[in-house]
Design a protein around this nucleic acid. Structure first.
Lengths: 210, 210
DNA sequence: AAGCATCCTGACCGATCGGTCAGCTTTTTA
DNA sequence: TAAAAAGCTGACCGATCGGTCAGGATGCTT
């Protein structure tokens, strides 16, 4: 067995990584049913049998990718407390989510496809982890409103507003680039869109910008 | 041949309607590749051969549904002029789009799937009709900003903000209901969410509410 | 070098895919 | 009422689906 601490990845790790990358693209574009292992194998440059040898089954591969996405979001969207500054928390949330849309658009589209499908694999996660995450935030938003630090807006709708507005730049990139005559969204586009969202949403909720 | 003016629909019209309805659901959930004519036929309660007899091919069926969606949106989102009141125009836009998300969620999800797929069928529409629609609105928003009727926000990002926030209640319904422990979104939910969006977005853009 | 475990893949499986078509039934027309 | 037209569908087509497996290739240990 080779030393796992070596900087160079093993053949296994390297191939598995290529498969996951390729699969994320195919699933993100065509959904669970529409994706084929053949297409994933072709994108990874491996025989179909080899893909199945590594990942076991289409179902397992899909679930692995979903879990990776949920984990990415969990680590990127840090915790907050009542004592934090509302403006910096909201702005941090918006900018973190936008950064995820920019750096991991395929993860976002994979998730979008899962939800469009009725969330057959993520029901438990929605009714568990994500519900808790949202509830803890809504409590804090309500306390902030009580303290006059922001308008008494519905905190659930506020979270979904931020979620949808930021997610949009990953999921609907084809629409944005098509309408605005771009080939792709640049760093400047993401920066200006982030600024816009921070400005409008913070002002819209009556949060004093720092 | 039966009189087409009769209130009762022809067998042809009735069956075609059932097929379109069933197909919209299957395409919206599973995307173009993931949808199967067999599944559409089962949902419509017809033999697979009969579905193909009516619609010709999977491709034609899909394009018919996409065109129907684009037409719905075109008729629902009316024209505006510089002389209109910014507040009522933005509020009307938000509420019209939310009404579409409530009454035609499958249309919205069908469109979302098409965009996730890279808009292979709607490229022309994006670079044509929709681009013109957006450009005409951005011009008016800019004029309003020049006249001090609203903040000088980027009008393109504003349109995408409204688009994404309203679309979300159709496309991500499974996420919303899962997180908020609902079985479905009620009329009251749509009403309160619409109020929230109007309030936050109008205030966020510095538009004076009527 | 020998033995052994892991890695890999071409060939194949039954099921399902989109689509065609011959031929039956039903409706309309003459 | 007979002929023509339109509506309809079971059987079938080649292609592709997800998945299995025998067996060859490769690399590590002794």
């Amino acid at each position: 067995m080779s030393d796992p601490n070596l900087p160079e990845a093993t053949v296994r790790e390297r191939n598995l990584q290529r498969i996951l990358e390729a699969a994320e693209g195919v699933f993100a574009r065509h959904g669970y049913r529409g994706a084929s292992i053949q297409a994933i194998a072709a994108a990874a440059g491996l025989p179909k049998s080899n893909v199945l040898y590594y990942v076991g089954s289409k179902r397992k591969l899909y679930m692995t990718l979903l879990e990776r996405t949920m984990q990415r979001w969990n680590t990127a969207l840090s915790d907050i407390t009542v004592d934090d500054d509302p403006a910096s928390v909201l702005e941090g949330f918006i900018r973190s989510k936008m950064r995820l849309s920019q750096t991991h658009p395929l993860s976002s589209r994979l998730f979008a496809n899962e939800i469009l499908q009725g969330a057959p694999f993520l029901q438990a996660s929605l009714r568990g982890d994500m519900r808790e995450w949202v509830e803890s935030r809504t409590k804090i938003f309500r306390l902030w409103a009580d303290q006059g630090l922001m308008d008494p807006v519905d905190p659930v709708w506020l979270i979904f507003l931020i979620w949808s507005a930021t997610q949009h730049y990953a999921d609907f990139e084809a629409q944005i680039t098509g309408i605005t005559d771009r080939t792709r969204l640049s760093d400047r586009d993401f920066a200006s869109a982030s600024d816009f969202l921070c400005q409008v949403i913070l002002k819209g909720c009556g949060v004093k910008a720092r």
